[in-house]
Design a protein around this nucleic acid. Sequence first.
DNA 1: TTCATAATGTATCGACTCGATACTTAATTC
DNA 2: GAATTAAGTATCGAGTCGATACATTATGAA
Lengths: 186, 186
Amino acid sequence: MALSFFDYVERINSLLRSWQRDDAELSMVPAVQLSALRYLSICNHYSDTVMGVTDYLGLTKGTVSQSLKALEERQWIYKEPDLQDKRIVHLKPTAAGLAVVQQLVAVQVLQQAVQQLGPELEQQLTGALHQLLSHVQRQEQRKSFGLCKSCRFHQQQDGLPFCGLTQQPLPVTSTQLICREHQDPA
Amino acid sequence: MALSFFDYVERINSLLRSWQRDDAELSMVPAVQLSALRYLSICNHYSDTVMGVTDYLGLTKGTVSQSLKALEERQWIYKEPDLQDKRIVHLKPTAAGLAVVQQLVAVQVLQQAVQQLGPELEQQLTGALHQLLSHVQRQEQRKSFGLCKSCRFHQQQDGLPFCGLTQQPLPVTSTQLICREHQDPA
DNA sequence: TTCATAATGTATCGACTCGATACTTAATTC
DNA sequence: GAATTAAGTATCGAGTCGATACATTATGAA
């Protein structure tokens, strides 16, 4: 009997915790806040809301609302009311917030370790993970949070990216970000 | 730019959280307690202590001591003092505790999804993860928590398993479990 | 042997997370 | 226009978590 995939995930999680605790600057920052901050740095303009973070992190909106409030007090994000829907607030990382994301030790160490695998193994690893999540999402009816450009609603109109779900043109930068409405092509 | 390995890990973590919260019976049980319980169900007799759990989960011993106390109150584990070292207490899952471990939805869903990948992809995935953790462990001087039988101290003596580190014979069942003293072969 | 040091584990405290509940405001539907 | 739905906030209690202090037992050196 060998270690299961679940065991590896648990092990990696423990390592992530350890790295964060050993980080002199960020050890006092709750892990959820950093996860939310990182999400906000890689999600598109349809997804940078309280509910977006809520779905992504798998928590309740009350909990998330509090963590985001803390992030705002740290001045790592700021809020911007939506122009169309007055219920919605967009959450955007500040320059300081982005700097924090880029200094996350966990991301750096993992990235370095992945690179040591070499391009083939890295390809196999992320490919298998992608497929795995795809299966899970299909079976469980969960959101996939995939890249905008890999979405079944992603289109081109007059040479510019366009979202077939919202029927709106897309900022070019959005297509490289993840979206809470993402659906794999059939 | 595609999703990074870190992104996949974060995504899987969110799913794990969601599954646990949706679990009718276990949603009230803190995730740390379940992680500790599962660890105790797959670790050998050198590792089933407060410090073993502490190292594995990447927390402090005070925190872990509390969670284990809660597990004991649920009667999912029981304590057994060490015969040689009177400071040490061994933590063993009860029958009820083992039943809980085997009903963890997260483990089941992930296992099912991995199986859908097929044997080759599964092999690639776990192989890459194993190598990845190996690199990380070497660079960061962290514990690897690998399988007893894959340890550089694992030996045979009179046809029976033997630990070269503790200089003690090993129960046959231990060799299939993970150990906090595990070291990869040079 | 004896005394200092280290290791395992527990107890307590305060800051914080997290889910549950209740609530406000705004959009949508009928 | 009323009912319903959705986004977000506020508050509360149980529990996590790190820090600190402490008790007990091992270990190692003088």
